[in-house]
Design a binder for these strands. Sequence first.
DNA 1: AAACTTTCTAAAGTTATGTAATTTATTTGA
DNA 2: TCAAATAAATTACATAACTTTAGAAAGTTT
Lengths: 411, 411
Amino acid sequence: MKREKSVHPKADALYINKLNKIKVLGLIRETGPVSRANIVKVSGLSAPTVTRIVDGLIHDEKLVVEVGMGSSSGGRPPLLIKFNGEQNYVIGIDLGATFTRGALSNLDGKFIKEIRIPTRLESGFNAIMEDLSDLINRLSIGNTRVRKQRIFGVGIAVAGLINKRENLVEYSPDFDWYNVDILIALEKSIEFPVIFDNVTRLMALGELSYGAGQKLQNFICVNVGYGIGAGIIVDGKLLMGADGFAGEFGHITVETDSDIQCSCKKYGCLEALASGRAIALTARSRLARGQSSLLVELCEGDVDKVTAKMVADAARNGDELARNVFYRAMEYIGIGISNLANIFNPELVTIGGGVSLAGDIFFDNIRKSVDKNIMQPTSRKVEILPVAFGENAALMGAFALILHRVLNLDI
Amino acid sequence: MKREKSVHPKADALYINKLNKIKVLGLIRETGPVSRANIVKVSGLSAPTVTRIVDGLIHDEKLVVEVGMGSSSGGRPPLLIKFNGEQNYVIGIDLGATFTRGALSNLDGKFIKEIRIPTRLESGFNAIMEDLSDLINRLSIGNTRVRKQRIFGVGIAVAGLINKRENLVEYSPDFDWYNVDILIALEKSIEFPVIFDNVTRLMALGELSYGAGQKLQNFICVNVGYGIGAGIIVDGKLLMGADGFAGEFGHITVETDSDIQCSCKKYGCLEALASGRAIALTARSRLARGQSSLLVELCEGDVDKVTAKMVADAARNGDELARNVFYRAMEYIGIGISNLANIFNPELVTIGGGVSLAGDIFFDNIRKSVDKNIMQPTSRKVEILPVAFGENAALMGAFALILHRVLNLDI
DNA sequence: AAACTTTCTAAAGTTATGTAATTTATTTGA
DNA sequence: TCAAATAAATTACATAACTTTAGAAAGTTT
């Protein structure tokens, strides 16, 4: 099953209209309450065209509403319109190995209802899908103000390799899934359109739709948690790759002759050296060798309970062992990000995921490493910031996934 | 000077016509002599529309010609048309540190005339620009069959960092140029449109337009010569980055604590460890330490004369030192390519540049390293092949640069 | 030679856009 | 206070490109 060579779709009158509709809707969404006259100015479209398109968006799609009059500047006052985010909804799911979080949100990204359930990891795929289906149904009912018809769909963020050609989760180490079909599993019980994608890519998509992407079109969103991944935005579009596997940033090699094996079986992967799991494992093995450290207290004597968070905490308190381990991991991440930056020339790199919650000790060390390893041709500097939405990043991405589908943002 | 957020241009009747024209022209170019009826089938456009568009391409743009009748399949025989590559021309320049090659070619990529001059590297930017202007003028005259009006422009491939926002060569280590303006330097004496870009990116563009790109839309073209770079094709488009610096593959870090410094001042860059220059330097330093090797004969006793080519030749003949040096370099390149593949999920990686001319010893070792370092989720395998046009790759890219402009391929 | 096929073109109808004129609602100024 | 000026939104009409339908052109088949 080869992907078709991407060609522009057949262009006819309807296609023009669709293009212009998308353009107008995008402008309304971005520039908030705005007059038709203003849209005429920035869109380059003629006034009658804008009027007609806006009418359609108000009465047919119901994605736009009038919000009253603006102030006159010496003539007829403008009728302001805005994106009708508040009366249109999406459901987002962050399917994690320990918890599954679901949220009903309006199209402005505002949470209406949120449910969090433990993930029955051991019970297998079918059990998890049943829980998921319950969760979605619970989110979609019980709120009188949310009309079911205005729920556009369900976006699901999954950790793992997503095969976009076949629409399968090809491999998920966290869940130990191989080629599972989420869509088929849910289609009987869910009446909304369901779309899923890799959690890290969705973080990037969320950032694109609700965060940094409002201004930037080339940036990278890195996830440093139990594993490591990257969502890459090129010219305002998510990088997918030929099969949809793009962004496996955790499995780039940053140490040539490393003897540390990754969960992917390779040696010297960034994920094997710098992920939350790697940080914990490295600290544990050092402790097991008998080195003294604050960590012994933090884990209450049970070395196997040491987590990346503990290592970060101990490092922040000046613990020698923890510092060595944590700083080294940040150096590797900095190298990885520098590599991405040299290849992509992005304007910004945002970082999210559990380990990033360590804060300054995390970002400062990464920035130091990036400064050392990036090729800086001139005064250009790549900004490195936390993701806009913290632990909600994946959910925001799931919203954005549906939003994109609704707004037809990717022609 | 910020780049505008990329929005679809205003869509009106003229715009759909342009879109469809591009589509039809593309189909004609790809499917060779073809009937209007056939274009109707694959394009999805109606027959009258195809007739009208083809008429325009024949009589107005003169980019298409009729080439006679096809054979009937039980009805009126088709009138075959094809892309008029033969009567439309481009000039391509490969501006190298030692030689400058220029070629006049038709739009099918067939060379009409070729000139090669030594590059007066020491004489500075202005002298080189004068030589370049002479070269272009010599290419554009003296052929009675080539009408000057049908020469669409000049594409120039330059080694170095190209700032696309300002249209400058921001930095070229080979030429020691900082922020030079090629367009201004040439505009007085050259009457054709001039466009330039990074040599490696152009190799990729050439591959896209005349080589692998006929079938693939996601691939990477790596250049391993004096330096190392990559041109990356994502969904049929060249990756540029926010400022146009994308593809600095040579400066990704592949060895964390390396003490080998790169020309970019960093340590552990791929280019510092595996470029032609690096291979030669490493071999020289080993020889200087007194290790015995075939290389001593090949360089006729003068260690400073050792080149990457000699190292490859000696390695091919079983020389121990040369093998160690060359194989190690290939291992690094394989790691670099694996990193690219993990991030981009391409269908193909092609490799060109001086060092790649070493042939099997080059490709076999790289493939071995890639097999070791790439994350292979399933049976998927990234193909690694030589570039389609060998030492002409950069010229083909320069042609493609103009071709793209002419055909408006990037809306 | 008549009927059938296939290719290409012409005429008429559709759709969405743009231009120009018009309506609407407010501010400005005599 | 009320007409003139100004700005926003709409209506009416012209335009451009597409599609559908119909038909002409140029072969093959029976």
